[in-house]
Simulated assay, not measured.
Amino acid sequence: MTEAVEYDVVVLGGGPAGENVVDRTRAAGLTTALVESELVGGECSYWACIPSKALLRPVLARADARRVPGLADSVRGPLDAEAVFAHRDYWTGHWKDDGQADWLDSIGAHLYRGHGRLYGTRKVAVTSPEGVHHVLSARYAVVVATGTRAVVPDLPGLAGAGPWTSREATSARQVPGRLLIVGGSVVAAEMATAWQALGSRVTVLVRGSGLLPRMEPFAGELVAEALTEAGAVVRTGVAVEAVVRDGPTGPVTVVLEGGELLEGDELLMATGRAPRTEDIGLDTVGLTPGDWIGVDESCRVPGHDWLYAVGDVNHRALLTHQGKYQARIAGAAIAARAA
């Protein structure tokens, strides 16, 4: 390890929540470092909110146009998938983060690219892709904003079947003829809507009684009705027991409880999120790797007056706009306590 570089605040994770902490602490005059292992902007910018909404925009615009007198007959044709993909790629910046990195530089924040881990009290160790090691120390606060990852259940045959997660579903470049989606989450609903409209024959398999179980029942019912009207198949009360794939690119078959077989060309697992905390050094500060991180009302971790957790990792609300809100609260609290 090199000699520690000191900042007032070190933020671990450069998604929307992490960026909002940086914005608040820099506005308060605190020196701030941001550590990011992938792309600045995080899941939302490249594999979630922005690409999913870019895929959905043409779908929803066409659906609205079909309800307008005089327009319905002129918008009956299929969507141009290549044009939709180009629209998505434009809004993701073609998976390049130059603009967001330039913004960090413009406000005087320091970006460290690499894998960051807590290294005891008020310290973060960073290993860059080139193998360069840094230790960053924080006078006032370290903020964990590492987000979540897709949960892929431990089903027989699934690991070797190359299933899609939300990342593949929002960045794929080919329309599968048949898409099987397991789960009733927001990801399942959005991707079923987008890929059905792009030409896939979509089947959604839900273990529970309906889509969107975290929301009011009527919301899931309305989405299921719309998907069914669009041509998708939504099945509830079904459980997947195993997955079989004929080679790396061949058809994929799911085995349902009771032995029924369903075949598709791709399989999307949309069965939940888990915190990205398994390898960020939580054990060095007395916390459990892989767990959600509990916080108080200012997003500070109880028992650690220097440690904060914002966004998905604290499990309060797994929504980007709520993560930004938490980040602004944490940033203001850090600045006030530093003063």
Results as ranks from 00 to 15, higher is better:
residue 6 E to F: 02
residue 7 Y to H: 10
residue 10 V to M: 00
residue 24 R to K: 11
residue 25 T to N: 08
residue 25 T to S: 03
residue 46 Y to A: 08
residue 51 P to Y: 01
residue 51 P to G: 07
residue 58 P to T: 13
residue 67 R to C: 09
residue 67 R to I: 04
residue 68 V to H: 12
residue 73 D to T: 11
residue 79 L to I: 04
residue 80 D to K: 06
residue 90 Y to T: 15
residue 96 K to I: 07
residue 100 Q to K: 14
residue 107 I to D: 14
residue 109 A to W: 04
residue 110 H to S: 15
residue 119 Y to I: 03
residue 122 R to W: 11
residue 130 E to G: 11
residue 130 E to L: 05
residue 132 V to S: 15
residue 137 S to T: 15
residue 138 A to Y: 02
residue 141 A to R: 07
residue 142 V to C: 10
residue 149 R to E: 15
residue 159 A to D: 15
residue 163 P to A: 08
residue 168 E to T: 09
residue 172 A to V: 04
residue 185 S to C: 00
residue 188 A to Q: 01
residue 194 A to K: 02
residue 195 W to S: 00
residue 195 W to V: 00
residue 196 Q to T: 08
residue 198 L to K: 01
residue 205 L to Y: 03
residue 206 V to I: 02
residue 218 F to N: 12
residue 224 A to M: 04
residue 233 V to E: 07
residue 234 V to D: 00
residue 239 A to N: 13
residue 242 A to C: 08
residue 243 V to I: 01
residue 246 D to I: 06
residue 257 E to M: 11
residue 258 G to I: 12
residue 258 G to N: 09
residue 261 L to C: 06
residue 263 E to L: 05
residue 265 D to E: 13
residue 270 A to S: 11
residue 270 A to N: 03
residue 272 G to I: 14
residue 278 E to W: 13
residue 290 G to F: 04
residue 294 G to D: 15
residue 297 E to Y: 12
residue 298 S to P: 07
residue 302 P to D: 08
residue 311 G to H: 07
residue 315 H to Q: 09
residue 320 T to W: 05
residue 330 A to L: 11
